[in-house]
Design a protein around this nucleic acid. Structure first.
Lengths: 149, 149
DNA sequence: GTATGTGCAAACCTTTTGCACCAAC
DNA sequence: GTTGGTGCAAAAGGTTTGCACATAC
């Protein structure tokens, strides 16, 4: 891995929090988020952070995640066993996510709610203010692996 | 309300559980589910049951709801303040739900995931095994009320 | 008579919060 | 120096479970 100085690391990390004050812990947490292969739980992230460095409190991880959720750089993409599933997301257009149930990889997908559907709701008198769509399935890699096994 | 004998009540209730053994509590819980005006939490249902009869344990309500979820007569339609939102649903075709954030009423909607969207995922190598769609908004009544207020 | 449901309370688990301390700006 | 982040532990809140007892079939 290319050597980067701490200023660069802080700058990269700061982008995930939306300009908040930066601490060594937040830098590590941000870097761990970028390292996660796909969707993750708070616990997953905490474990990854622990693997990469000294211990950081779970509460700190939750607070950092809260900041990233507010900043919109991390989004909720569903849930697994009662824990929220999160993912790093650098898209800022309206879209949804396809989560691989085998490896957790996340793929952004275009919003499949066409004008027609929303119009139909509208015609029935309903005003749709928000919606959640999550697709679960197998990504290309896991599908291949599954077939070969 | 029309008088119905206990056998009829038991039969009606049994339909919600998918043929399980019937108790007085489960009959009351089933009837309460049918009385709920729309989406409800376990707590909501527990309160409604309590209003209609003697006390029934919250655990019993949760276990009854579990049975109905397994039977598919009650479905999860989202969440509110950290509690699961449930609703009675007698449709057995594939569809989704629009939940009114004001009054909790639930409206079934056709699945807006067209063949094209699923095919696009397929073309990318992904196998979509399940999906969740929930629309939040205002139903016709609440929309009118809102406008008049 | 046996398998299943009930009630109660305790356990569980994820997430949040209070507080004293520390560090970034 | 002030504002905001951290650690720890405790609390919160929804949901599940163990166990003794009751009851539908």
């Amino acid at each position: 891995m290319r050597q980067v100085d701490s200023k660069t690391r802080a700058r990269t990390a700061r982008a995930l929090y939306g300009g908040a004050r930066m601490s060594a812990q937040r830098v590590l947490i941000a870097e761990s988020v970028l390292v996660m292969p796909g969707a993750f739980t708070a616990e997953d992230l905490h474990r990854t952070v622990a693997d990469r460095s000294t211990h950081i409190g779970l509460a700190t991880v939750y607070r950092a995640l809260g900041a990233m959720l507010s900043a919109g750089t991390v989004v909720a993409v569903g849930e697994r066993d009662g824990s929220a599933l999160l993912a790093y997301c650098n898209r800022n257009d309206h879209h949804h996510h396809l989560v691989c149930t085998a490896c957790g990889s996340v793929l952004g997908i275009e919003c499949p709610l066409e004008e027609a559907v929303l119009q139909a709701a509208e015609d029935a008198g309903h005003l749709v203010t928000s919606h959640e769509i999550t697709l679960y399935g197998l990504c290309a890699d896991c599908r291949t692996r599954d077939r070969d096994a």
